[in-house]
Design a protein around this nucleic acid. Structure first.
Lengths: 220, 220
DNA sequence: ATAATAAATATAATCGATTATATTAAAACG
DNA sequence: CGTTTTAATATAATCGATTATATTTATTAT
């Protein structure tokens, strides 16, 4: 991280989010490796902002578990292990199970259309091999279901467990093409559209078990 | 909040945690009511600290869902509704279901002893009518089980959904005595000690369904 | 030479002040 | 009299500098 030149962020407040994304990006791109320190003052200097917003951004990364903070010592990039991936899939599986149950109960026609439209966007992104857009739609698909369930606490918990970044990693290391991954969501969509709790639960379980099995196949 | 005199916190760094607790306490005691603003500068003045640590403390309260932040406008105390309580019980039920499954799988004799000891502490606190200690042990009992499951992501998610404070409120508004509440944990303990996944799941489900049913009985 | 102690350094945590934004109050206009 | 525009105010967001802590390096004593 020391030697890289970073583009200073635009001069306009609410830097926090941009700073968080900049640091997150560095982690995702591998510029910051597990165990590396994240030095508040240095990032502040590089991005041309003060220490305060950098500090807050790092706090947020700490909350979602991407970095670890030791008081008076600093922040360090956490290593995301295969076990972490698997653990997070399990957590998602259980949280989204609650989401699916609520979704089947509350979903209306308009929302079914919305999910369908997200699913199609996802499949188109997959065809175009647009990785970033694919991730976005994949995450949104699952989030939408959770949101429809009308359990705000659930939605917050779901959002906080760092789904987006782990999905990014999980998709990145997957053996499958985006198209193979995207079509896997169809069963769940159909079950919800049919308001079939039983089937939706099965589809969801299968969805995550597939992802977990594939992790086991990876050598690293 | 305006008129109350607050005890300035001790002069030694890492104010953040104390500040967070001070604000949280004000919310719990009802000094700050739902919808009230939490003004960074005013709290800083009252506690004799600067704005920065107050800001960070508020960010943490925002993360656990106790307050709501609107950019460039401020923080407002969130109302905890009966629905929020119920929703959070459901989330806990699903998260802890995963925890219990893992716990039964991984628990060793020493850990069984530890859970037992927490259970007894809880029951003693209940006998003494020591409300704060009771909550602490109640929360710890559940957390311990989640911790034993060896799923770090689960533990983090569980911790982040503001369990402690909601348990506090839930216990506070319960119709039951602490002793009635404490003994309800025995079945779950026994099932885990017997390494009986089936029974442990049943006990956990029953535990939360009791809590949710009781919420319905409250007029509000 | 090794252990204990003290100085130096790096950086997190905090501070006091400044800047940016949103809201409210006042004024000008039609 | 109501509507739009402008000024004033409150406070969030950020800044640059200071203070506190941990770690490293140098020094002294045994």
């Amino acid at each position: 991280m020391d030697t890289l030149k970073r583009k200073p962020i635009e001069k306009r407040p609410l830097y926090r989010d941009e700073i968080r994304n900049a640091i997150k990006k560095a982690i995702m791109l591998g510029e910051l490796k597990p165990g590396d320190r994240i030095i508040e003052t240095r990032w502040a200097r590089e991005l041309g902002v003060s220490q305060s917003p950098v500090r807050e951004a790092i706090r947020e990364l700490e909350m979602i578990g991407l970095v670890e903070n030791i008081p008076y010592q600093g922040c360090f990039v956490k290593k995301v292990t295969k076990k972490d991936m698997k653990d997070s899939y399990k957590v998602r599986q259980h949280l989204e199970m609650l989401g699916v149950q609520g979704a089947v109960e509350h979903v209306n026609e308009e929302q079914i259309q919305e999910i369908y439209s997200i699913l199609k966007d996802m499949e188109h992104a997959a065809e175009d091999n647009d990785f970033d857009l694919y991730i976005k739609k994949d995450v949104l698909f699952h989030k939408k279901i959770v949101a429809i369930s009308k359990n705000d606490i659930l939605l917050r918990s779901w959002e906080q467990c760092n789904i987006h970044d782990l999905t990014y990693i999980g998709t990145w290391i997957s053996h499958h093409t985006l198209e193979q991954l995207s079509v896997r969501h169809e069963g769940l969509y159909e079950a919800i559209a049919a308001r079939d709790t039983e089937r939706a639960s099965r589809e969801l379980t299968r969805h995550f078990e597939q992802l977990m099995e594939e992790l086991d196949l990876r050598e690293d």
